[in-house]
């Protein structure tokens, strides 16, 4: 590789990264403030089903005659919220498992990691569908399932980082001092592994959004009256030829969100790598 190529690609990364970051910020603003800007209520029937866009309803109406613009403005919150909730759950469970495995080693380590391998043996969508089968699907299963898919990866990263830190002098000193395990974890281990563990959080967030959206699309997550973007794509499928905006609007917004999150995460990872 020539000496010029690397910095140039980094710069390209910067430009695209900055653009993606700006777009992501704008999207998140729409997601957060959307419900306040919506002209109609998300469940309010305002006209005939699948009416074409007009001055009063710029994106037309959906299969029940509700305003598509208002539903789209309301529909981003659940997409972001459930993905974040699943991530928080996954980091708690996976983080704990990784900390214990990394610090204890031996049998505990082996048992925990084999358990993670079993979860990895399932393709994610299949795992989520099987979990949903007992109840026919619910938001609790959605969050638990998306979290479960993320747990093994997080546990592995935390375990590796913890095992490395555990051999450091300050941890051995704390052990020799007679400090208790929770205190060692909180004061000596966590602060030193935090940046490593957070490195791929962006990528995991993107994956969580994708998985949750797929479950909602398949009708085993969020229930239909909610104006979730992925739910909207499913419920307006029959209007594909009549009123394509009822599908195109939520589809484009969802795609914009997942792409910008992934691009920002990707650029951040590359920056980190080249900074080292």
């Amino acid at each position: 590789m020539s000496a010029v190529a690397a910095p140039r690609s980094q710069l390209a990364g910067h430009r695209v990264g900055q653009f993606a970051l700006a777009l992501l910020a704008a999207l998140l603003l729409v997601v957060a403030l959307g419900p306040l800007l919506a002209p109609d209520g998300p469940s309010e029937i305002v006209g005939a089903p699948f009416s074409a866009p007009s001055a009063t309803h710029p994106l037309g109406t959906d299969y029940l005659g509700r305003d598509v613009l208002s539903r789209v403005l309301n529909g981003g919150r659940s997409v972001v919220f459930y993905a974040l909730l699943a991530m928080a759950t996954a980091y708690t469970v996976g983080g704990l498992a990784g900390l214990v495995a990394g610090l204890r080693g031996g049998f505990t380590d082996a048992a925990l990691m084999r358990l993670m391998d079993v979860v990895l043996a399932f393709p994610p969508i299949l795992l989520l569908l099987v979990l949903a089968a007992g109840t026919g699907g619910s938001t609790a299963i959605l969050v638990a399932g998306v979290a479960l898919v993320n747990v093994p990866g997080i546990a592995r990263v935390v375990r590796a980082a913890t095992a490395e830190v555990a051999t450091k002098g300050y941890v051995e000193a704390a052990v020799a001092r007679g400090a208790r395990t929770p205190s060692i974890l909180a004061r000596d281990v966590l602060p030193n592994i935090a940046s490593t563990v957070a490195a791929d959080a962006g990528t995991r967030f993107a994956i969580s959004i994708l998985l949750a959206a797929a479950m909602n699309f398949l009708g085993v997550g969020i229930e239909p009256p909610s104006p979730d973007w992925s739910v909207m794509i499913t419920e307006n499928r029959s209007g594909l030829t009549l009123q394509p905006w009822a599908l195109a609007a939520p589809a484009l917004l969802l795609a914009a969100l997942t792409v910008t999150v992934s691009v920002v995460a990707d650029v951040l990872t590359r920056e980190r790598r080249s900074a080292r």
């Binding site: 190529a5 993107a206 992934s262």
Partner: peptide, 30 residues
């Protein structure tokens, strides 16, 4: 690596990974 085609391919593939299949399918059908 880092040539024009490579740059194009790597951004396109990143977008391809990031868009859910049901969105891609819906947009292609549209």
């Amino acid at each position: 690596r880092d040539g024009k085609l490579d740059q194009l391919v790597s951004w396109l593939t990143l977008a391809g990974v990031a868009v859910p299949e049901f969105v891609t399918g819906t947009l292609l059908a549209l």
